[in-house]
Amino acid sequence: MPLPEPSANGASFRVQDPLFVLEAHCRKALEHHPNPTRSIEAARLREATQLLLTRLETTRSPGEKSA
């Protein structure tokens, strides 16, 4: 899945949402795994991804969230 369009918020500078980038990175890592559905490594990868996304979603302040 391609990265979402960066947020500009009226400014000409467009920034990436770390959550989206992290999610895309994790998804990419999982998709590139040789056995993404059944292997233990893939399961650990999914668990690590879930841990990161949950932490990032809960720890970052609302102002930092993507519009």
Binding site: R14, V15, P18, V21, H25, R44, L45, E47, A48, L52
Partner: peptide, 27 residues
């Protein structure tokens, strides 16, 4: 799991930084 997550974080950080520099160069 956290070590693996840390590796994922480092990869995502690099991607974010690269994207930011690219956008910075554009602006």
């Amino acid at each position: 799991i956290r070590t693996l997550a840390k590796e994922l974080l480092q990869g995502a950080s690099g991607t974010l930084h690269t994207l930011f520099v690219e956008e910075l160069n554009r602006v």
